[in-house]
Design a protein around this nucleic acid. Structure first.
Length: 213
DNA sequence: GACCAGGCACATC
DNA sequence: GATGTGCATGGT
């Protein structure tokens, strides 16, 4: 019976290094984490490209920016009215709590940061954990729709398992290592995209044979 | 033209 | 507590 570490090795061999998160700075990762909610990354790239073009990809700039202008800039990412509000809320937290510095934020304790992020309207567990892991380097395993699909299809967990339970499973069975969680989650997305779509053909999935279930 | 995409908050029973 | 719905653009 394969272990989660076996899965990691198989995925690494098949897909190679993933170089996640696709963003140049911690703040860009935070912005991307909000914009990618239920949205293809391709669309997020356009939105972030707009922000860069107008030199708006900066905590203080975004904090001062009016919401309508922000909406227009991020329109390609979809749900642009909601996301403008959510981004403003996240940026306000960063500016007011840490003077806009992701480096300062990274020095705060992980559990405290997670609680604070979850209090922000529009930031749920996945967005919070993506920020913690990929922007702040905290050892937190991110569960997303692909991770959920891979774990359930391979019978690691049942369909009804909650976010926190899956996260706890991954973290309890793997060493507490941000680099490992980073690469592992990225690989989950890679295998999920190619082999674990809703109507997927699993024949060539590198994770076969599945666990018995 | 359906279906899907690195979710989340809120309404209603 | 569980179940349903709105949010929106863009690629396949």
């Amino acid at each position: 019976m394969p272990t989660l570490e076996d899965y990691f090795r198989k995925l690494s061999l098949h897909f190679g290094p993933q170089h996640w998160w696709p963003g140049e700075t911690p703040f860009e990762v935070l912005v991307g984490a909000v914009l990618t909610q239920n949205t293809a990354w391709k669309n997020v790239e356009k939105a972030i490209g707009n922000l860069k073009t107008f030199r708006l990809l900066d905590p203080h700039k975004l904090h001062e920016l009016d919401e309508e202008t922000l909406q227009e800039a991020i329109r390609p990412a979809g749900y642009f009215r909601q996301k403008a509000k959510r981004l403003k809320a996240a940026v306000a937290w960063l500016v007011e709590r840490f003077g806009g510095s992701m480096e300062k934020a990274a020095r705060e304790e992980t559990g405290k940061l997670r609680d604070e992020l979850l209090e922000i309207k529009g930031i749920g567990p996945e967005t919070a954990d993506s920020i913690l892991l990929y922007a702040l380097g905290k050892p937190v395993f991110v569960i997303d729709t692909y991770t959920y699909r891979v774990l359930t299809r391979h019978h690691w967990v049942g369909e009804e398992t909650t976010y926190e339970e899956m996260q706890e499973l991954m973290q309890s069975k793997l060493p507490r290592d941000a680099k490992l969680y980073n690469e592992y989650h990225a690989l989950m997305v890679a295998v999920g995209k190619e082999f674990c779509r809703p109507q997927a053909r699993c024949e060539r999935c590198p994770l076969k044979p599945y666990l018995p279930g």
